[in-house]
Design a protein around this nucleic acid. Structure first.
Lengths: 141, 141
DNA sequence: GACAGATCGTTGACTACGCAAATAATATGG
DNA sequence: CCATATTATTTGCGTAGTCAACGATCTGTC
């Protein structure tokens, strides 16, 4: 647990730098854009926030710069004016594809040397962990 | 990678709440106190920061409240006045032991239902990952 | 012995997030 | 049809971390 903290922080920071210099977005931005690209529906902010495990206010703030540089658009729902719908722009779609490729390469480099078997185990764990809400995990590890 | 982000954040937040209500410290504080308790030497701040993968300034700021509530003490080195040595107080030692037990229980609960095999794999991965600095990992996973 | 340069800790300015309260809009009971 | 409750987003304020710049101190070299 303790190392997950440090490891994750360092990896995310590295990705931030890499993505930032090449595409002008951070890791958190990429996560948001990916979700938008892969969405079936046009998300309301609240649903998007829930899927990303982000607070609604956190999402509001994350969207501001993305809207400013025209990677996303927001539009008030016609039926319910409380709701704002978020959608990728064409530019956004291009960027997310490029940036994802960059991230994939960066990650390959980051985790090189770690046995594939372990990576698979982690991936499996994380899929389950998507649902941890009232459960938790092994102590200090 | 993407899920590590969210999972880690949520788990850490949960631990924060739990530790905060029972012992008055956060997860980050526990990590620092544990390192101090388990240290062979009396750490300089810079070495402590390096071990925790924290920036020196981040550590400075994290130590302020810990010193204020007397869980740690700082003392100028006699030989080199630039260096400040950090040490647990008696109270600090008591708190860290109690809080660690709380964290262990919380983690057991958090990760219940995840196969032990996977947890071991992750633990192994993290040991290796301690040294990732110029390497990275598998893409979006 | 003075002084140029490295090292240690702190500070300022910034980002990214959370929670709680405020705001705006809709839904509902009487 | 109005009063009240509920829902979606935003805003205010606090926390935790980063990096870059600074002052204090130490060290090696002339």
């Amino acid at each position: 647990m303790i190392q997950i903290n440090a490891m994750q922080a360092r990896a995310a920071r590295k990705l931030d730098l890499w993505l930032g210099s090449l595409h002008g977005i951070g890791f958190g931005d990429l996560v948001i854009l990916r979700a938008l690209r892969d969405a079936r529906e046009v998300y309301r902010q609240l649903d998007l926030a829930r899927q990303l495990h982000l607070s609604p206010s956190g999402l509001t703030r994350a969207l501001i710069p993305l809207e400013k540089i025209h990677l996303i658009e927001r539009e008030r729902d016609a039926r319910d004016a409380r709701i704002s719908r978020v959608r990728l722009t064409e530019t956004g779609r291009r960027i997310v594809d490029d940036a994802e490729e960059t991230a994939r390469e960066a990650c390959e480099q980051l985790f090189a040397g770690i046995p594939l078997r372990d990576l698979r185990a982690v991936a499996g764990l994380l899929d389950d962990a998507g649902s941890i809400s009232e459960r938790s995990s092994k102590a200090s590890a």
